[in-house]
Design a protein around this nucleic acid. Structure first.
Lengths: 220, 220
DNA sequence: TTACGCATTAATGTATACACAAATGGATAC
DNA sequence: GTATCCATTTGTGTATACATTAATGCGTAA
C-alpha cells in the first residue's frame, strides 16, 4: 500500500485516535488490544508507544497498559508558558531575517482566513487558520529544534482546545494581535514582534487556564 | 542485580558511551553490534535507540545503523537560543515563588563551588558546579515540561563543552552573573532574574558559537 | 573505461514464543 | 468481618526467527 512502515502507521493511527477522542484522555489500553485494533503485532505498537510517550501523548505504565495522557489545567499552564517564550523568540528571529513576499503571504492569508472565519462565526475554521498562522510563524523563526518542541506543545493545546473552543470568548483581540505581529515582521522589527506575540500568548494562557480551572477538566 | 530493565540499562550505557566519547559523534553502529556490546538482544537496544532519538542523541537511519548525532555550530546556536529563553523564564518563575532557605542554599553552594573551582583553576569542577546551578535554577522554576526540554538541550551543550571547555576564556563573568541571578531570586525580583539570566546565556551562546565556528567542529 | 542493471548480501522491520513479575482473587486464620 | 498469604492469571520484557528491502559489487555492454 505504501513505502511506510507499520511503526509509522501505528503512530499516525494512534495520534488520530487520540485527537479525535476515540482514545479518551486517561484511558488505558493494553498493547495486545491496540495491536489487534491496528491489525499488527505488538512490536510496532510498542515502538509507536515509545515515540508517542516522548511527545507526551501517552504514558507507558507496565502492566496497566498504555495510558492516554490527561491534560490538566496545571499542565496547560506549563505548556503555555513554554509556548509563550518559544514562539515569541521565533517571532523575533523571523523579524530579523529577510523574507520573500511569498513567505509573508502565507502569514497574511492565515490572518485573512481568521477574519473571515470570525465574521462567519465558524470557530472550527478559525482554529485551523490560527494553527496555520502559528505554525508558519515558528517556521520563519528558522530553528528546527524549537519548531519541534513547539509542535509537541501545540499538540497538547489542540487537545485541550477541542473542549474549550466553544466556551471561550470570541477571539477578536487575537486577530488584531496577529496582524501586529505580522506588521512587525514585515517591518523587520524584532522587539515589537517579540513583545506583541508574548503578550498575545500570555493573554491566551490566562484565559484558557481560567476556563479549565473553572470547569475542572482534569481529564482533558 | 537490580529491578531495572534491559532497556533502561541500554539507555544508561549508551548515554554514558556517548558522553564519554566512546561512541563518537557521527559514527554509525548496527543494532546487532550494540546488542553484542551490551550483552543483550536487539529488542531492548532498538527501544533504547528510539528513546535516545527522541532526546536528539542519536539518529536512526534504516540500513545504515544508529548514528550518534553530530553537534554543529549551527546546532549549538539553536540550542542556546532555546536554553536562553527557557532558563530565563525559569529564573523569573523562581523569583516569583516563595522559597525556603534550604532551596536557596543549594544555589548558593553551587556558586561557592564555582568560585573555588575557578580559583583552583579546575575547569572540570567548575563545569560540574555550573551544571548544578543551572539544574537547580530550572527546578525552582517549577515547570516539569520545561525542565525536561532544558535537560535535553543541556545534554547537547555538555557534549559540545567536552571539546571547548579548555579553549574558552576563564568564566569569571559567569560567576558574577550567577550571583546576580541568585540575588534577584532571593529578593523576589522576577524581572531582574529574567533579564540578567538572559544576558548571561546570550553571552555564553555568542562565545561558544564563535569558538565552534572558528574551529569548525562539525562532528562535535 | 564508464555506466547501467541485476544478483547477492546484509540489516532492518515484524511476528512470535516464552520467561518473569506484578496484580488479582480466594482461602485461611484471627 | 477483616487481614494476610498464596496460587493463579495475565501483561510485559526479551529473545529469536523470519520476511523484506535497501545497499553493494560484479558482470556486461557501450
Amino acid at each position: 500500500m505504501g513505502a511506510t512502515t507499520n511503526v509509522e502507521r501505528a503512530v499516525s493511527a494512534l495520534r488520530r485516535m487520540i485527537f479525535s477522542g476515540e482514545l479518551p484522555p486517561g484511558s488505558d489500553h493494553l498493547e495486545t488490544e491496540l495491536a489487534d485494533t491496528l491489525g499488527m503485532s505488538r512490536t510496532p505498537v510498542r515502538e509507536a508507544a515509545l515515540i508517542l510517550q516522548a511527545q507526551g501523548l501517552v504514558e507507558l505504565r507496565p502492566r496497566r497498559g498504555i495510558r492516554i495522557a490527561p491534560v490538566s489545567a496545571a499542565d496547560m499552564a506549563e505548556i503555555y508558558d513554554i509556548l509563550t517564550e518559544l514562539e515569541s523568540l521565533a517571532a523575533a528571529r523571523a523579524a530579523e531575517a529577510e523574507y520573500s513576499k511569498a513567505d509573508l503571504d502565507t502569514l497574511a492569508s492565515a490572518i485573512k482566513d481568521m477574519d473571515s472565519a470570525l465574521a462567519a462565526d465558524d470557530l472550527r475554521a478559525w482554529a485551523e487558520a490560527d494553527d496555520r498562522f502559528h505554525r508558519e510563524l515558528v517556521r520563519l523563526g528558522r530553528n528546527a529544534r524549537l519548531s519541534m518542541v513547539v509542535s509537541v506543545m501545540r499538540d497538547q493545546v489542540r487537545r485541550a482546545r477541542a473542549t474549550t473552543l466553544y466556551m471561550r470568548p470570541k477571539p477578536t483581540q487575537s486577530n488584531e494581535d496577529h496582524r501586529k505581529v505580522y506588521q512587525a515582521i514585515a517591518n523587520r522589527d524584532p522587539t515589537t514582534a517579540h513583545d506583541v506575540h508574548r503578550a498575545h500568548r500570555q493573554a491566551a494562557r490566562d484565559m484558557l487556564v481560567a476556563l479549565l480551572d473553572k470547569h475542572q477538566f482534569y481529564g482533558l
